[in-house]
Computed example of a mutant assay.
Amino acid sequence: MTPAETQLLSDAVKIGFPVLGTIAGTIIGGVSTYLLSKLGHKHDSKKELSKRRFDLLMQTANDVTEFEHLIGTYATEVSNKVQGLKGAVDFEEAKSNIYKNNQPLRRARMALKVLGLKEAEISLEKYIEITRELIRFGPNLSKERASELAKKIVLGPVEFYEALSKELSIV
């Protein structure tokens, strides 16, 4: 090989390897950036879904609490009326509130279906079944039955809250 050819080959190696290294580095950097961005987006999506689920669970709990307050007030007034006592709230107003303000309960039941929370849904339905008897018969209940239902209703849907708390701890 002539000295000119050797010099040309030496220059090609000196220029070629850094260029190949730069191209390889660019490709590796691009692929790494893409993969890290994809993983970050997936994590952010899961985080957002968890936050939305948590918010819906809390809204469901608040909706049931709102209904629980309405039915508790009505149960107390039914018990007072049956026993001939004067209540703190007007009986007719308490009865009217049950019929007019049942949207939170409907929302809660819908949310439980959407979230697929069977255990919480079954527990809530048990509680609602107790309230149905009170709403259906109201002041026509015996003193004993009105008192018994009022006690159960005022305790609240404990099983429902316990089932829901299992879901909140997972989130």
Rank of each mutant, 00 (worst) to 15 (best):
residue 1 M to E: 02
residue 4 A to I: 13
residue 4 A to Y: 11
residue 8 L to M: 13
residue 8 L to F: 14
residue 8 L to R: 13
residue 9 L to D: 11
residue 10 S to T: 15
residue 13 V to Q: 05
residue 14 K to E: 12
residue 19 V to E: 04
residue 23 I to H: 06
residue 24 A to K: 00
residue 26 T to E: 07
residue 30 G to H: 03
residue 31 V to T: 09
residue 32 S to Y: 14
residue 33 T to P: 00
residue 33 T to F: 15
residue 34 Y to T: 10
residue 36 L to H: 01
residue 37 S to A: 02
residue 37 S to V: 08
residue 38 K to Y: 00
residue 39 L to C: 01
residue 41 H to T: 04
residue 41 H to V: 01
residue 45 S to K: 00
residue 45 S to V: 08
residue 45 S to I: 03
residue 48 E to F: 01
residue 48 E to S: 11
residue 48 E to K: 05
residue 49 L to M: 01
residue 50 S to C: 00
residue 50 S to G: 04
residue 52 R to D: 03
residue 52 R to V: 10
residue 52 R to K: 00
residue 52 R to W: 01
residue 54 F to H: 08
residue 54 F to N: 07
residue 54 F to C: 04
residue 56 L to M: 09
residue 59 Q to K: 06
residue 59 Q to P: 07
residue 60 T to L: 03
residue 61 A to M: 11
residue 62 N to V: 13
residue 64 V to A: 00
residue 65 T to I: 11
residue 65 T to W: 08
residue 65 T to A: 13
residue 66 E to W: 07
residue 69 H to S: 12
residue 74 Y to R: 01
residue 76 T to S: 06
residue 76 T to V: 02
residue 79 S to Q: 07
residue 80 N to H: 10
residue 81 K to F: 12
residue 82 V to C: 01
residue 84 G to K: 06
residue 84 G to D: 03
residue 85 L to C: 05
residue 88 A to Y: 10
residue 91 F to R: 02
residue 94 A to S: 15
residue 94 A to I: 15
residue 96 S to G: 03
residue 97 N to T: 02
residue 98 I to F: 07
residue 102 N to D: 14
residue 102 N to P: 08
residue 107 R to T: 10
residue 109 R to T: 14
residue 114 V to L: 12
residue 118 K to D: 15
residue 119 E to R: 04
residue 121 E to R: 03
residue 125 E to A: 13
residue 126 K to Q: 03
residue 127 Y to H: 11
residue 129 E to F: 10
residue 129 E to Y: 12
residue 130 I to E: 15
residue 133 E to P: 06
residue 133 E to T: 08
residue 140 N to A: 14
residue 140 N to P: 03
residue 143 K to F: 10
residue 144 E to T: 14
residue 146 A to P: 00
residue 147 S to L: 08
residue 151 K to R: 04
residue 156 G to P: 06
residue 157 P to A: 12
residue 163 A to Q: 13
residue 167 E to D: 15
residue 167 E to G: 09
residue 168 L to N: 08
residue 169 S to M: 12
residue 170 I to H: 04
